[in-house]
Amino acid sequence: MIEASNLDKFYGKFQALKNINFSVAQGERVVICGPSGSGKSTLIRCFNGLENHNAGKLVVDGIEVYEGSRDIRKLRQEVGMVFQQFNLFPHLTVLENLTIGPIRVRKKSQQEAEANARTYLERVHIPEQADKYPSQLSGGQQQRVAIARSLCMETRIMLFDEPTSALDPEMINEVLEVMVDLAEGGGMTMVCVTHEMGFARKVADKMVFMDEGEIIETAPPERFFTAPETERCQEFLQQILVH
């Protein structure tokens, strides 16, 4: 589903991604972790064209991604994204947040979009909040709305960029629960940047560790957590698991 070869990304002179080779198979669930500033967000944002790589080749769901590509909107209809800061539309109700994409982009009828939206709201356990505005919800609820918004587009791939790190601790679990549910529902290809190692253990098919713009280690979770090969990865895991 995602095939990246030799990706480089520069911000001015600063190289944020260095020769990234990475692939995700259909239905695979990948968790990316690594220290702050290691380029995790940059990489995952390349996958739906929010950032453009400068060198190398990136193919997502059969569509080649490059700067100025005309297929980028087609791509985004197949790749959903959930952000750290939710990025809900504050001037629209929860229901409108969920239906605006299906109606305007997918050209569905209002009834169909609303019925669909309510199903997904149920799936993220907040059917009763449909008519509220995002600002009236807790952080955890907002993030679940954001997940539902992505689900409503019925994409084949979902990207998560630290979906729980802006949340108060007591709300993290309700969001993770929903994500585990999604992962175990099957069929969905997921790429998730997170430091929630409990979640990673539970759902990941593959762990990826990044540092300083490079992929340092790729391993199945059993091996990743018990016997990481590189020293940097061991250090990172120690730090994070102590917390």
Binding site: F86, N87, R104, V105
Partner: peptide
Amino acid sequence: GQWEGAESIGMSTPQVYRFIILP
């Protein structure tokens, strides 16, 4: 973030302006 949210659900630039940014 509003741009990113809107673009990530596949909206075109005119749609982002009309439905998300200008309001």
